[in-house]
Design a protein around this nucleic acid. Structure first.
Lengths: 257, 257
DNA sequence: GCGGACCGTTCCGCTCAGTGGAACGCATTC
DNA sequence: GAATGCGTTCCACTGAGCGGAACGGTCCGC
């Protein structure tokens, strides 16, 4: 595979435009034309045309009045992003419960869903002092987080297999990195109805997570309480998280989600 | 203007794709093919092709396994939306301050920026009991909200004029609806350094707002405390909001935003 | 001051990606 | 069983998109 070529050679205009938009990420929020051309592997003039049109459509923005220019994702994106059903419907139902849980535990509360073999954080409460490196919209391998493990534990076997096939990258020395270990862990999670994550995703950070089910009784999300290892006591937090997750599941069932 | 035609006839593929994506809104989170064709004014087969490709690019999603199908905005959108600089950089800096303010006042905290002549909510804390109809990513005319007025008060005159030219729609009987009234209000806001909103955006809801400035000393955002009218006391809340806004401005200045 | 590197922008003839009317199969509804 | 509305597929036509090349600007180090 060439360095300039992505895995599939981008052909149609739409796929090229998408590639341009995907060039922006956490560590590259602002990109110049040349950067974009490099990162997408597209000719400069092509990128220029696409990016310019995206600006005129208000999808991308350019601080024309300012000094240093460069393209960036526009407000348009943020507004649409907030309308995404998995986020909105879930968050609307979850926020009250999450706030109660935050109040009761004074720790950081996470709500996440499964997307493919990864966990995506949909809502986070309590950005507080210590900076835990979780971000709304952030993505982590499912096997390495509390919410991820609880999501896998109640997902079809095919999903778990997909995660194993995609690899079990080690985030910390305590990350579960073997298929057998994962299977055993998931069985244990199902038997107790919650998951523990003792520094498996980040050193010094632990969490307790519980499953949230939708109206169809299928797993929909994972809810967790996260904090620095010393302050996370599974014995007291476990019941709190499980209760909140049950409440949320009931709310979802009541509104048919 | 025809009913099927938007103001500018959409021509290029990109603008058509954008039109398809913009067909989704707060009250239409899920749309079928025919709906999309109707709302965009494009031929059915064209929409089908575009939407299908957007699905294969993971921009749109379709619950293939479920019963009722229809297109919806995908997680892809949510993830990108969270990366939008105006949202991310501001939120990162603001959340700690907002949480303190929330803790101190026990009311709902809003952070909003100006986009054109509208206010867009970038971050909201405290979704609590009473449902105030504000939504992250939501958009309201600037003259009719506390944060909006404070943003206008410190914006260039051209911005205020643009708002007046776009009209001053009445949201409640107390909304400021005349250019003169607005000018007077903005002058008053500048003199006291904060804005009051007494049921101007929603009946029964009031708020106190203060300006947040960036490293360039230009207005960047508005910060507000909002609640049911009875529980909002400007005398006590005013200093709290202004203090928080000052703190946030200083944080932004320190990190050069 | 000058050559070179790198940036964003513009031009323009070639061609294939995108177009959309029409026809299809399938549920619902009357 | 005719009518309506849905999503899907087909295919001959054509202009929207393509991108190499050339241009003008700024910022270096020599």
């Amino acid at each position: 595979m060439r360095s300039t070529e992505r895995n599939g050679p981008p052909v149609s205009l739409l796929s090229r435009a998408t590639a341009v938009l995907e060039a922006f990420d956490d560590s590259h929020p602002v990109l110049g034309l040349a950067d974009l051309a490099r990162r997408t592997g597209l000719p400069k003039s092509t990128v220029h045309r696409i990016a310019s049109e995206l600006v005129s459509l208000r999808v991308l923005e350019r601080p024309d009045d300012a000094t240093v220019d460069g393209y960036r994702l526009g407000m348009w994106f943020f507004e649409r992003g907030e309308l995404v059903p998995v986020h909105r419907s879930l968050s609307d139902a979850a926020l009250p419960v999450m706030e109660d849980l935050r109040e009761a535990t004074r720790q950081r509360i996470h709500l996440a869903v499964l997307d493919g073999v990864d966990v995506v954080y949909v809502e986070i409460l309590g950005t507080g002092r210590h900076d835990i490196a979780s971000r709304t919209g952030g993505r982590l391998p499912a096997h390495a987080t509390g919410v991820g493990k609880v999501l896998l534990a109640y997902s079809p076997a095919a999903t778990v297999r997909a995660r194993v096939d995609a690899g079990l990258p080690r985030m910390t020395p305590r990350t579960i990195a073997t298929p057998g270990g994962l299977t055993r862990e998931l069985r244990k999670i199902r038997s107790v109805g919650m998951a523990l994550d003792l520094e498996e995703s980040h050193l010094g950070i632990s969490c307790v997570a519980a499953p949230v089910f939708g109206a169809d009784h299928k797993i929909r999300a994972g809810l967790s309480v996260t904090g620095v290892t010393g302050s996370i006591d599974p014995v007291t937090l476990g019941p709190a998280v499980r209760t909140a997750a049950f409440t949320l599941s009931r709310t979802l069932r009541a509104s048919g989600l």
